[in-house]
Amino acid sequence: MRNALLAEHRKLVSTRLWWVLLIGMAGYLAFIGAVMAFTFTVTADGAEAPLTGVDAATATYSLVNAIGYVFPLVVGSLSVTSEFRHRTITQTLLVEPRRTVVVVAKLLATVPVGLALGLVGVLALVATSAPLLSWRGDGAFLTDPEVIAVLVLGVVTTAVWAVVGAALGTLLTNQVAVVVVILAFTQLVEPIARTALGAFDAVAGVSAYLPGAAADALIGASLFGEIAGVDLLPRWAGALVLLGYGAVFALLGRLTTFRRDIG
C-alpha cells in the first residue's frame, strides 16, 4: 500500500494540472474574498450590512468551501479519469493488479494535494478579505478561536473534497463528462437546490444533506446558511455525510468500472 500511495502521489504531482488549479483557486478566492468583504463592510448610507461582526468574518472565510470546492473536486476526479483518458491505467493495473488497492491509493493520494489547495485557498481568501473586514467592518477576528476553527477546517474540508472527487472519478471515468458534471452540480444544481429546498419548510432539512451543505457543516459556517437561515448539521455529522458521499462513489466505482476488463 505504501508503494501504491507513493506511485499515486507521483502521478498527481508530475503533471501541471494540480498547480495550475492551485493558482486558479488562489486567484479566484482572493477575488471572491475581496468582493464579499466589500459587500459586508461597504453599505449605502443607512442600510444594514447583511452580516456583521464575527458572523461576517466566518461566512467570508467559509467560502473556501462554497465557492472553492470545484477545484479540489476537479483535481481529485482528474487523478482517476486522466488514467483512462491517456490509457495509463493499463500499466497501473499491471504493476498493481489488486484493484481495491489501486482505488484506495488513489483516494488517499489526493489528500496532500487537497491540503495544499485548501491552505493556499484559505490564505488567498484571508489575504484580501481580512484587511477589508478590519478596515471598514467590525474586524477580521483572526485570533478568535471559532474563526481559527473555520480556517483550519476549511483546509481540511478542501482535502476531503479532493478525496470525494477521486471517488467520483472512479465511478465516472470519462474526463469530459466528469468535469461537466462537477461544474453543473457545483455552479448550478447545488446552489439552486439549497436555496429552493430552504424555501420550503417541509424539505428544508433535506438541503443540509447536500454535499456542499455537509461541507459547510464540517467547516461550521456557511454563507448560504446565514442568508437562507437554514440550519447546518453538527460538525461531526457534516463530516460523516461528506465522507459518505465519497465512500458510496468509490464503492460503486469499484463494483462497476474497476470490476470490468480494463486496458
Binding site: 507513493l6 506511485a7 503533471t15 495509463t88
Partner: peptide
C-alpha cells in the same frame, strides 16, 4: 501492451510513477 502515456509527464517521470510498485 499498447502502452499509454500522459502527454504532460516527462519520460523519466512516467517511469518514476511506476517505480515504487516495481520496487
Amino acid at each position: 501492451l499498447d502502452p499509454g502515456f500522459h502527454p504532460g509527464r516527462t519520460g523519466l517521470a512516467h517511469l518514476e510513477t511506476y517505480a515504487p510498485q516495481v520496487g
